[in-house]
Design a protein around this nucleic acid. Structure first.
Lengths: 267, 267
DNA sequence: CTGATTTCCGTAAGGTATACGAGAATTGCA
DNA sequence: TGCAATTCTCGTATACCTTACGGAAATCAG
């Protein structure tokens, strides 16, 4: 299931956390409400440390291990201490996600990059896929209302900049970018989830299917499934589940890019 | 987040439940271990009733409401009574999923269907999308290790049968089907999740973005995001979030099918 | 040394799944 | 009729989760 982050209380506070208060260099009328100044007990932690600990736990022991109690224990403080640094579990998740989104090495505006737009998209795909495999718990986090942080914006900017040069309409460029992120994020997420389940259950997907051999012997009716049977008999299901996932990922992405390229050539 | 169903104990029992013991008409050596016969207290419920109640709760009050306690209360029995009918929450989820997968009206083998394979795929897409919108909690359930039930198999059979006729290799047909289900299931799931969040939070996605207006004023640096800025200035983001989702869904599916069609024409 | 300020965190409330075992209901056989 | 075998029912207990509340501890300015 996908972890839901339902209603964040104060958008301003969440934004300030995500951007670590790096406001753009305008007037700066606000006295920069940062911690540390003036009176009061010294903090023993900081936001980055809390986020890093939570990511470490999620990476090594699964997202469930990154509970408030778990993170607190990892940092050797009381559970409630975390709430000094982070308003709630939801915001902590947002911070974790934007943090790992930032691990992708995507050329910024002006930085050198391949000439071919498809190669540029491939960088996005490779980096995103690697990110998911490093942090498989990402596949369990809903991104409908994503963390509106610097790294999430940088990712969208990069993909859009790659698509701009193929000369679609502005709206078309946006649609193409949405289609690509939908496919890449979902397919990479599925791959990551697959490995995650193999590790957390200690059972490969192939072994899982083998355990259900009963299906074919006892329940599967060949007459009701001629297409599956035909493909099976023609060895269409050859190879391991894992290889199929990798191959299918590339296949789908290439076909999607083919289709986008074709609409660009028409105009 | 995505609900995880980690390790089901006995595959045989789960299969028997999913298929409601409708084994294919072979020898039938087993004395058909169905309930109801012989001595013992009469059951007050049945599996279908439990599954139906769980789906009803999830539809109306979210997946979290379909807890064991919640379903039991809905049926006016003690929580532990449910475990007579279903081995665990995991299996109940499997049963819920296969049940709603079966709501899709997909022509079976031999049944009349459109001539054009793309129209056939469109039926799959429309029916699946409608299913997700009727049961948005589906987007929270992981399908890496899906319920191996009749309705899940029927869906895969239908899609494969539609793709068979375009004359790809067996392996290519399988890859194309995987790519399509990945895209359709994910994109439809995202749409459904979007509506689910709008309903459960009582806040439209547009309102959610508006609440984060601070982003553009305080943090967003135009120089770092020239592509986004260009598309914004050219009205590339016009329309509501919801319209964009629907339009993007169609756009991505059409481009993917374009790409698949092109590889078929080559050979 | 005092008062203001900030961090730290124990406790408690209300949620989840499910192992265990006792008790109730029903049938068939002696 | 009595009784054993069988099956369903479900209260209790355990071990987690998030977080509201409020008081104690630490630190600085004056």
């Amino acid at each position: 299931m996908t972890e839901r982050r339902s209603g964040e209380g104060q958008p301003e506070r969440t934004l300030a956390l995500l951007w670590r208060n790096h406001r753009k260099s305008t007037a700066d009328k606000e006295p920069t409400v940062l911690r540390g100044r003036g009176a009061g007990r010294r903090p023993s932690l900081d936001v980055n440390g809390v986020v890093a600990a939570a990511i470490r736990l999620a990476d090594t022991q699964g997202l469930a291990a990154a509970s408030m109690g778990g993170v607190a224990k990892e940092l050797d403080v009381g559970t409630m201490t975390l709430y000094t640094y982070v308003p709630s579990k939801e915001e902590l998740l947002d911070l974790m996600v934007d943090q790992v989104l930032g691990e992708r090495e995507l050329p910024g505006p002006g930085a050198p990059r391949p000439h071919d737009w498809r190669e540029q998209v491939e960088i996005y795909s490779d980096q995103t896929r690697a990110m998911f495999l490093r942090h498989p718990w990402l596949s369990q986090v809903s991104t409908i209302r994503p963390p509106v942080g610097p790294s999430m914006l940088a990712g969208r900017e990069y993909l859009l900049s790659a698509l701009l040069e193929i000369g679609l309409t502005p709206r078309g460029t946006n649609l193409a970018a949405l289609a690509i992120t939908t496919y890449v994020d979902s397919a990479a997420g599925l791959e990551a989830e697959s490995e995650l389940i193999e590790q957390s259950t200690g059972q490969t997907n192939d072994a899982w299917w083998y355990e259900r051999n009963d299906l074919w012997e006892t329940y599967f009716d060949v007459d009701q499934h001629p297409a599956m049977t035909a493909i099976w008999n023609a060895n269409g299901y050859q190879g391991t589940t894992r290889d199929a996932a990798t191959e299918s990922y590339r296949y789908g992405l290439d076909r999607l890019l083919d289709g986008i390229q074709a609409t660009a050539l028409e105009s």
